[in-house]
Design a protein around this nucleic acid. Structure first.
Lengths: 197, 197
DNA sequence: GGCCTTGTTGAGCAGTGCTCGACAAGATAG
DNA sequence: CTATCTTGTCGAGCACTGCTCAACAAGGCC
């Protein structure tokens, strides 16, 4: 019989195991038995904590998202005009350090699952909010559209950059490039809101 | 007994069925039986054509990718300086017209599967090549990095825009914005290639 | 000590991906 | 027209997996 744990501890343990395993293999390749065996518990108990395998996966991805959002956070000690750079630098650093898990959780994930989609949406929204706050611009639908797009650009840069074995550019330079790209993208919005012809 | 078809025809039929079904539900929710039933054949025959369910899915995604690349193609009659705009307009139009399938195949897909990843990579590369050719810039690793990132931006814009029930901006304006964003992003590259400090 | 809560088990069901040996419809040759 | 070969097709069956459920055991409380 497995050691008896408190609800919270057991949940944390199971999610931790998920973070480990699912960083290197997709959900459909992970059987509930494997998780249970690794935790030293029975299959049934896993379903006591997570009604569904999808629910379990969602909980794991949610934990990963929390880690990302925590990592990509500029501390309050950062000067206002360096907030954006600090956030982007932290984000890029996170992707570089945890490339495989990042891809597994935020690219590979069963994107069709509405739960997972919701998590992705939350992360995007949170990052967009931070960037918007750092620029000081009002959060109109159009500015949000542009900033979300800019984050996609940043993600692409970070992922590609983290995949190079001999990076073409230094991480700091990449961050500078990404940060400097945002004002131009926002300036171009004038044409969108006031459509000429 | 099912009508006897030629190899090519049967494959085409099965892939067509996949394009229909998988546009609205994820693979793991699609059973081989359902495909077989819809095609009026036995389960076994499906595995004769596609050794694995994953192989089948990959074939379907490949077909979807081919459709996307065909749609997002500027005809030879387009003037050189309009090629980029034409390509982007076609791409955005495709996403707007086929939003659900687009998300299902190019976002939802089992991203962990190396076959699927390879297809995504091919699409990205092909689109990047077209954009680079249209700008006339040399295809260095750094310009590719930037153009790939720009395509991510464009995809984000297109997906977000196609999801709005009352679009904040007209599609043409969005295309203009996207196209006009590229030169600025490429100009900023100077700082990357010649790092100061 | 008795009892309620709660963490835990293990057998078992339904469904799914995949294999495999056999069969049948056309094409080809004699 | 028959014999043979190719090739598209079937369906039973295996192994496994997600999930259910009734029973059990370890604390905590009175």
């Amino acid at each position: 019989m497995a050691e008896r744990l408190r609800q919270d501890d057991r949940r944390r343990q199971l999610i931790g195991i998920g973070l480990e395993i699912l960083a290197t293999k997709p959900i459909h390749a992970l059987s509930v038995d494997e998780v249970a065996a690794r935790a030293g518990i029975s299959r049934g108990l896993l379903f006591h904590y997570f009604a569904t395998k999808q629910d379990y996966y969602a909980a794991v991805v949610r934990a990963a998202a929390r880690r990302l959002l925590t990592a990509a956070q500029a501390g309050p000690e950062v000067a206002p005009d360096r907030q954006l750079r600090s956030t982007v630098a932290a984000y890029v650093g996170f992707v570089v350090r945890h490339r495989e898990p990042y891809l597994a959780f935020f690219r590979g994930g069963a994107g069709a699952d509405p739960q997972i989609q919701a998590i992705y949406e939350e992360v995007r929204d949170a990052l967009t909010d931070r960037a918007l706050a750092a620029t000081g611009l009002p959060a109109s639908p159009v500015t949000r559209l542009a900033v979300r797009g800019w984050w996609s650009l940043v993600e692409s840069l970070a992922v590609d950059h983290s995949g190079e074995r001999a990076p073409a550019v230094a991480s700091e330079a990449l961050v500078s490039y990404a940060v400097d790209a945002l004002p131009g993208l926002l300036a171009g919005l004038d044409r969108l809101t006031a459509p000429a012809i």
